[in-house]
């Protein structure tokens, strides 16, 4: 469904991404790992249209999306979360989901004023799924760090994306929360029929979720394969453990 060929991103002389190519199948969970600064977030910013002038090809179900505006890409079915939380200040949890849902509504429906708190099974089901239903009408900004992460994931899913990109969803979570998160990510795929790209430092989450993993180092793809293949890769070991045993 996603086809990436020779994706590069330069900031002046600095090469943040170099000739990245990979494919993503329907319903696949792909992990992207690498040290800080390896280009993971740059890669998904390029895919989602945020920042820089990337070159190469990015196709979503055959449609070229590279260089399109972020809202256009989102409306084509790519949703994401942010490594540094991007909560809508002052808005309730429920309103976060309504905003994302808007892309599915017709302009006429969007112009209809709404005065009553209409029940929305879709919103409630998502909140229930992430165990934040009790915060539905609370200000999202006031929630704990972990809960705000869950709001972001619920917001991303509220637009019924074909592709969900999660940028370090496990950051700041403890071991137990990470375990729950890993099972949730696998469940998201089953329930919402979406392909997932997962950026994560927590290897237990990567191992539990991803059929395939891509390793980035200094903006380049240095390895691709299953967790076991990656773990055995000398190039990866060198990037992660240092030069001495190379």
């Amino acid at each position: 469904m996603l086809e990436i060929r020779n994706l590069s991103q330069y900031y002046g002389e600095f090469c943040a991404l170099k000739d990245i190519s990979f494919d993503l199948g329907e319903n696949e969970i792909l992990g992207i790992i690498g040290q800080n600064g390896a280009g993971k977030t740059t890669l998904i910013n390029s895919i989602t249209g945020l920042g820089g002038r990337p070159s190469g090809t990015v196709r979503l179900d055959g449609t070229d999306i590279l260089g399109k505006r972020p809202d256009t890409i989102a409306r084509l079915g790519v949703a994401r979360t942010f490594q540094n939380l991007r909560i809508f200040r002052g808005m309730t949890v429920r309103e976060h989901l309504l905003v994302a849902q808007n892309r599915k509504l017709s302009p006429g429906r969007k112009l209809l004023p709404n005065f009553r708190n209409t029940e929305d099974a879709g919103v409630d089901a998502l909140l229930e799924f992430f165990d934040i239903l009790r915060f539905r009408d609370d200000d999202a900004e006031g929630l704990s760090y972990g809960d705000r992460r869950r709001v972001e994931m619920a917001r991303a899913l509220a637009g019924s994306p074909k592709l969900l990109i999660l940028d370090e969803p496990g950051a700041g979570m403890n071991e137990q929360e990470s375990e729950v998160l890993a099972s949730q990510i696998r469940e998201i795929r089953e329930r919402f029929h979406t392909a997932i790209i997962l950026i994560e430092h927590d290897m237990s989450i990567i191992r539990a979720c991803c059929e395939r993993i891509i390793v980035l180092d200094h903006g380049q793809k240095i390895a691709e394969g299953s967790f076991e293949q990656i773990a055995a890769d000398r190039e990866v070991q060198r990037a992660y453990l240092g030069e001495e045993d190379a």
């Binding site: 505006r69 909560i87 809508f88 905003v99 969007k110």
Partner: peptide, 25 residues
Amino acid sequence: KTRYGLDVEAVAADSEAAAAAGVRV
């Protein structure tokens, strides 16, 4: 009171995050 009104608030709160959620910023 419309969904456009909600879009406006999302854009004001964080226009990039709003765009990533599909709002026509």
